[in-house]
Design a protein around this nucleic acid. Structure first.
Lengths: 215, 215, 215, 215
DNA sequence: TATGAATGAGTATTCATTCAT
DNA sequence: AATGAATGAATACTCATTCAT
């Protein structure tokens, strides 16, 4: 997500390590603060000052690191995307074991959504009114959709999933996975105040998805 | 949750029938205009002036009919809820024909979400930062969840859906149905600018859900 | 400069005359207030709130009438330009009497600069840092330059102004006229606190310009 | 008007020659950088950070050498004033050759304005909203005005320039000279992007001014 | 009832200036 | 002497809401 390369590499004067670390730390602090504030107040209600204050900084510093709220939030969501990409198995892995591949994907999503819950709350809230964030969301979805579509076509080649449209089904399954991970991690929606056990949740999701994919 | 009944009916001043009708018409115009603007700009970006202008009215008149945007939106969502309740089959119907019951439910949802798409845009956007609207959404979901849970338990009584947790699965299936209806009706998300055929969409949703429920 | 036509002519509901007058009056008040504030504080120091307050209004109202300070100021300068165009003789007039033509032009400029002094202060101050206003200034200058160039060429056709480059000289003379009108009307520059007599000023300007043009 | 002498020379801490030289160099670099930025962006838009960056320094160092933008700019204008004084012929020179005196003055001004164009941009922009800089500008003008007035009176003593008011005419001619030098050197005003030839410009200015003075 | 001008609180954003390193 | 991160005051701009007509 964020490069460790100094911003002005043309600069002859090298920053000291301490200074560079400080700058990096502030950026991190702002990102982390944004997660806290978004989780608490929602994306729409999250004010720049609040984020800066939560990071223990003054309002003005925000603009040394981000252009606006959208850009900061994009950076947050990018981190989520990178994480999901990192932990989900590639299409090549488990080539001969679809069940394990799906289990691994579900697991990856489930844990990513736990870790990045504030981001997902914000994304759901903001994407429908901010074209830039909509695009970010669509990209994230597309990756999952492609993988589900690939899996369905593979199953159909084996005489399964008869009558299903791979593209349509894939967006439905991606929606199921995404929304359910969000929902069950949320302290506010279907199970307010309750924490769903990891094993139980992933097992349940597998039950559902494996039935659809006839694994 | 707030009632759809107009608040100003309490007014002491007696009105002629014509005035009452005109007043009602303005209220309806504002509600309809809000749907148009929310569908176009998103809930967050929908400004009161824009809604009023879309209704062919001036900004000020809004406050004769609604307290604020939240209250107007609650009224919209109430209507949505009433409609969903009206068109979805009761639990008693199709008692002996689960497949038809599910098909009917999917159909009802699909068409409700087509008609009430702006409401869903707004709900998704606002519920996560507005407790009142979150409550509205939860109520809507609960109705669908109860029905899925009931259906799963019935299937389990018949030796099907073995190993599934009815409550958890039900919220997942409700999420699948809700989010997919929203998604496929949306001109912006997975199929931008494309209209999904009604028959194809409902068939596809049935394919998926019937597999999970082992109908 | 500003049209009397209502902004939303599509509107079926006609504004009452009183309302329309009020709106127009506010716009005028803001323009006039801007002149006062610019004359007092300079263009750069003129804040939107100050202008609004000077007009007896709150800050927000400014944006119902103008997009920003640049646009308001353009409107002011447009008025100046319209006035200069209205009072300066056309090229056709005085065709056979160059001396009178030049006298009339000088007079027109002199009185326009008296009336629009705040605008000219602002223009001088702002044009070098605001491309939009630079363009406005250049347009105003071009008109005067064309007229001086035309006059010089005419004189050269009569064997006068030998060796002068019409284009270059014209911009110099326009600068002389413009800057001197500004300067002598100013209470701050070469004659601080002193008011130069109209007749004396225009006579002096004519003395200078007629020598250059060999009238 | 402020002195160009560096304020920090009062410093109690003794410095090695190298340090002193380095310090002086930084000050010069900042002054030069300011000229570049002002010429490019205008005085109002010139930010301290931009000036420092242009000088290859960090923002903070600015305040080791100048109190604020006004003080830096005063220093620039002082240098300009000194240069104009140095290069323009004294009243005594060319006593017996008015034509040469005027030519020399025009030449001096023309080249000074070429060299100090950024200063003039800044002066025009700032003098009208900053009393201190207005005073600087007035001083510069006064010197030119006195010389023109002296010349006109001399001519009148020889029976020329009949009917001209020496004081008024002098401010007009000074304005003509000043503004035209600025204008023709500018890449933005009447001849955008075009460089006017030195010989042509000074010849043209002499054509005009000599006619007024009846040289 | 309806209008739309006006209000003013809320928020984003900029940038001169300071100061620990 | 120099750095550049951080501050916070200044200001622009938006928009829900009110109210005289």
């Amino acid at each position: 997500m964020q490069s460790t390369a100094p911003r002005r590499s043309v600069d002859a004067t090298p920053k000291t390590i301490v200074q560079r670390r400080k700058s990096k730390a502030t950026r991190e602090a702002l990102l982390e603060a944004a997660r806290v504030v978004i989780a608490r107040d929602g994306y729409t209600n999250a004010r720049i000052v609040d984020i800066a204050r939560e990071a223990g900084k003054s309002a003005g510093v925000f603009y040394s690191y981000f252009e606006d709220k959208t850009q900061l939030f994009s950076a947050l969501v990018d981190a989520f995307y990178e994480d999901v990409k990192r932990v989900t198995p590639t299409l090549k892995e488990y080539e001969d074991n679809p069940a394990e591949a799906v289990k691994a994907s579900i697991n990856a999503f489930w844990h990513a959504y736990r870790h990045f819950h504030p981001e997902m709350v914000g994304l759901l809230e903001s994407a429908l009114s901010d074209p830039a964030l909509l695009e970010v969301w669509r990209n994230i979805r597309q990756r999952g959709i492609r993988r589900f579509a690939y899996r369905i076509k593979k199953q159909q080649a084996n005489g399964k999933c008869v009558g299903m449209d791979p593209e349509l089904s894939a967006t439905a399954l991606q929606g199921l996975l995404e929304f359910t991970c969000f929902n069950w991690h949320s302290k506010k929606l279907d199970f307010p105040g309750k924490r769903i056990d990891d094993a139980k949740a992933t097992r349940e999701l597998y039950q559902i998805i494996s039935r659809v994919l006839e694994l």
